[in-house]
Each structure stands twice: as structure tokens, then as C-alpha cells.
């Protein structure tokens, strides 16, 4: 890992994204230093599970690094929060939710404020599209179980702890992407299995 220099800590988030896009590993470390705690807290508030929070935050930073060179981010802070919001959905089923969580769920709606959050919705939508574009792990897993291991949707649902409906949706996405990616990425797609 590269050490942090004094200059990096002085840079704006925008500048850090530029540097990250240039492949500067130090920039990633500085982004981490600035934002990891807020991201972790946001995920922990929701999941109350360290393993799950570790997974999703690790994924986000790894993803940032693999996408260096093509990152177009206007506000890093809200981008990262949106990423947390999205990645939480990867693991939420895995986490044992307690009574506090359920109580919260049943009462939350009453406490919703009416402030519209168009920007947040937009950003979350953007994040989803970006992550989905990489064919999400679960989607790949579902496809693999179905096509290479010949499990039924029901068996896959049981095995992964998701609903049959979700299995269907994942398959649809996989097939859609599969069809649109025939060509150079075809082999890579196959190679994933």
C-alpha cells in the first residue's frame, strides 16, 4: 500500500477522483480514510452485522478501484452512500434480523418525512445500473446453478435463501445480458462459470 502524502490529504474529493481515474492507489486510500467510517455506520445502522458490513464496504472500494479510469462522480459522498444503499440489498437476507428491526419496519412508514428525494433516487438508479452492468454475483450464481448444475428455480431459491420470484428475475437479467453481450465478451462471460 502506498503511504499517504501530505498533498493527498489537502485535495478535494473531485481531485481525488481524477487521481483515482489515473490509477493512483494513494487516492483510493485517501478516499477510504475520508469516507469509510460514515459508510460503515450507514450500513451498520441497517444491518447490525459486522461480517455483512465488511463485505459490502470491501466490495464498494474494490469496485471503485476496478472502475478507475471510467468513474464519473459529481459528489463522492452521496455516490458512496448510494453505493452502500444498493449493496445493503446484497446481504440483507443473510443477516439475522431481530425484533428491533421488525418493529422498526412496521412503524417506519409513519415517521417518513414528505421531502422528495429525486436526487437520491436518481443516484441510486445510476448506481444500480452500474453495478448490474457487471452482472452481479448473485445473478451469476443463479445462472450457474440453473444452467451448469441443473437446479430448479425452487432448489436455487432454497439454496440461496431468496424467493423463487427473485430467481426468475435474476435469470431474466442474466439471459438479457447474455444475449446482449454475445461477441467479444461472450467468452469472458462463459469463463465466469
Amino acid at each position: 500500500m502506498l503511504g499517504l502524502t501530505n498533498t493527498l490529504t489537502d485535495f478535494s474529493d473531485d481531485k481525488l477522483i481524477d487521481l483515482l481515474n489515473d490509477g493512483d492507489r494513494g487516492a483510493l486510500d485517501e478516499i477510504y480514510r475520508r469516507h469509510w467510517s460514515a459508510m460503515y455506520i450507514a450500513s451498520f445502522n441497517m444491518l447490525k452485522d459486522h461480517d455483512a458490513c465488511m463485505d459490502i464496504n470491501q466490495d464498494i472500494f474494490t469496485w471503485l478501484w476496478t472502475k478507475r479510469g471510467e468513474l464519473k462522480i459529481t459528489s463522492l459522498k452521496s455516490y458512496l452512500l448510494s453505493a452502500v444503499r444498493y449493496k445493503v440489498t446484497d446481504v440483507i437476507r443473510r443477516v439475522k434480523v431481530g425484533k428491533v428491526f421488525l418493529d422498526h419496519l412496521s412503524q417506519a412508514e409513519a415517521s417518513f418525512d414528505n421531502v422528495t428525494s429525486d436526487l437520491e433516487v436518481k443516484e441510486l438508479r445510476k448506481i444500480i445500473l452500474q453495478f448490474i452492468a457487471d452482472l452481479p454475483d448473485r445473478c451469476r450464481e443463479v445462472f450457474d446453478l440453473s444452467r451448469n448444475h441443473h437446479l430448479s428455480n425452487k432448489e436455487i431459491a432454497l439454496r440461496l435463501g431468496i424467493t423463487e420470484k427473485a430467481v426468475e428475475r435474476q435469470m431474466t437479467i442474466a439471459l438479457k445480458r447474455f444475449k446482449s453481450s454475445i461477441g467479444s465478451s461472450y467468452h469472458i462471460f462463459i469463463g465466469l462459470f
Binding site: Y86, T89, I92, I128, I132, R138, T163, R169
Partner: peptide, 10 residues
Amino acid sequence: FQLTDKINDG
């Protein structure tokens, strides 16, 4: 969970 599934798969 259905809601989060839908978010997750786009």
C-alpha cells in the same frame, strides 16, 4: 425483502 430484492436486481 421483496423490495430489497427488486432494488438488488434492478
